[in-house]
Design a protein around this nucleic acid. Sequence first.
DNA 1: TTGCGTGCAAAGGTTTTGCATGGCA
DNA 2: TGCCATGCAAAACCTTTGCACGCAA
Lengths: 148, 148
Amino acid sequence: MSGSNYKTRQRQAILDYLMEHKDCHVTVGNISEYMEQDNTHVGVTTIYRHLDKLLEQGLIRKYTVDGTTSACFQYSGKSEQCREHFHMKCEKCGRLIHMNCTHLEEICSHIGEEHGFHIDLFRTVFYGICAECYKKNEGRDNDEKEDE
Amino acid sequence: MSGSNYKTRQRQAILDYLMEHKDCHVTVGNISEYMEQDNTHVGVTTIYRHLDKLLEQGLIRKYTVDGTTSACFQYSGKSEQCREHFHMKCEKCGRLIHMNCTHLEEICSHIGEEHGFHIDLFRTVFYGICAECYKKNEGRDNDEKEDE
DNA sequence: TTGCGTGCAAAGGTTTTGCATGGCA
DNA sequence: TGCCATGCAAAACCTTTGCACGCAA
């Protein structure tokens, strides 16, 4: 499997971009556009192919964010440790938060033992609003009605 | 918004199908194919439009399951109570499990209070393998390697 | 030199839009 | 009858594939 990684301009550019944006998710379109502006053209085909590899290698994650049709990717680093904690994604700012908390680790065993459900930590993501965005938004627009 | 729901053959057929399959997710293709076999043709456009409405009304959920390119939908019912518990999705059989568990509810408050992260219970789904599928699969194929 | 990497064009899918027609209220 | 609902065809996207050429090792 994808064991041969030639060191090419394109590969480096994509990796750089992903690492610079490790706090939020990006689409193939984002990457492509950025490269264009940067006069560092990289074909979308190439981007897709590298993302596939990185995904296989567990270096990035793939999401489907509400309202978007295209897939979102995000750098998460050598993931072994990411298989041991939960991730939360802020729906406002898009930040990915690695939640290291023993209390939460317990969830996993609880669900496994009591409910017989074996959680895939790598794929499971909590969606919600992060502390900062929540503060910012507090009391502001009741535009997004809380339903009754 | 979408407040006017005419009672049409198509709307009813789609709703029926969704409710009959409330235990698993279905794609637009599934719905369309079924209708065809059932001699109850419904155009895909119509299906998409109804799913959008149902989504808006919170009657169904939308997923993107790994490896699939098309969106998956699943009936979840008048969702008010589904905003109060977690959901788990089995990646093997596709079943959606409504997890009513006080222990887990605590987790929610823990995350909210200690970590300041406000979970969106309606959108958050735990991915993994359900008890039944886990049993079935136990010791069988190490085909799907556990990585090293 | 070898074989992977790249990029264009084309193909394959899924989802959305436009528009004329059908059907509920 | 007035509107919304429907469905076909076409458009708009996103992603994958085929193939010739480029380039790292």
